[in-house]
């Protein structure tokens, strides 16, 4: 697999995303509303606990939500389902007729599709956070958060491919999407910092890859300068791409496409 293919898949998908300005603006508007709402809820919660909650300040929590929502809303919310439908309907057969790895091209393309949304979420999230709570507590950590967001999105896309690949066997990805979404929301730290979870659940969350998809960039944006989070994300990215590739490779052998 050469880089030119991945670069072209990325660029083509970005162009496709930019051809849909309507949905792009709606998604950004939705993101702003969610950040303002959930961020305010956490600010109020922190205020009622003498200004901090599990080590997070009210300002930090607002930035946390801005980053965690960027990480999850920049990619298609129902990607697992979309991939699963392509497998079950046989649409994936067209991609299998190309002399390249289906999963590698798909990940590059999904990343290309996510980048314009990610940029708009970062810009909108920064603007809303600055207006509502002011600048982040640690600018260096916030800058690292931008890199972490890219890794978070790649991890999420790879994991969704691994999850959706189950459709090769069970011919239905909808149930896996529901499960996956809940894992990212709670164990991934999208809705709340994992330190707020009961200790046992926090330990489980730390052992799973979902924290690489929301918690890591959000923790950095909240002002905790922990560059090691990028290493953890990178390691999970390698693992998740490997699992997705292995799932597809095994699944392609089991593909059942009947009819034209």
């Amino acid at each position: 697999m050469n880089l030119r293919i991945l670069r072209t898949a990325f660029g083509t998908a970005t162009r496709r995303a930019l051809r849909e300005p309507g949905s792009f603006f709606v998604a950004t508007g939705f993101y702003v509303a969610v950040v303002a709402m959930v961020g305010t809820l956490w600010r109020v919660a922190a205020a009622s606990h003498h200004g901090t909650l599990a080590g997070y300040t009210a300002v930090g929590l607002f930035w946390y939500i801005a980053a965690s929502e960027s990480a999850t809303m920049a990619i298609s919310l129902r990607l697992v389902e979309e991939i699963g439908d392509d497998i079950v309907s046989g649409a994936i057969a067209v991609e299998m007729l190309r002399p390249v790895s289906v999963v590698a091209v798909r990940i590059a393309a999904e990343f290309g599709r996510a980048v314009p949304k990610l940029i708009s979420c970062i810009l909108a999230g920064t603007a809303v956070s600055l207006v509502v709570v002011g600048p982040p507590r640690n600018v260096g950590a916030a800058l690292l958060s931008a890199i972490s967001l890219v890794l978070a999105i790649l991890c999420n896309i790879a994991a969704q491919h691994a999850f959706a690949g189950i459709a090769f066997w069970i011919r239905d990805a909808r149930s896996t999407w529901f499960l996956y979404q809940k894992f990212v929301f709670v164990l991934g730290g999208m809705l709340l910092p994992i330190q707020i979870l009961p200790t046992a659940l926090e330990q489980i969350a730390r052992a799973l890859p979902f924290t690489a998809m929301a918690y890591a960039p959000a923790r950095l944006a909240a002002g905790f300068f922990e560059p090691e989070l990028l290493l953890v994300q990178s390691a999970w990215l390698v693992v998740l791409i490997g699992v997705a590739a292995a799932t597809f490779q095994a699944g392609e052998r089991r593909l059942q496409v009947v009819g034209g």
Partner: peptide, 30 residues
């Protein structure tokens, strides 16, 4: 796949939002 071409009348290999030339660029890279 490098030596055969396939056309399924009910499945497109072009990207609807793009022009054919842009799709060809992607396929050319592939």
């Amino acid at each position: 796949a490098m030596r055969i071409g396939t056309l399924f009348g009910q499945r497109s290999q072009l990207w609807f939002e793009l022009t054919p030339r842009q799709s060809f660029r992607m396929l050319g890279a592939i």
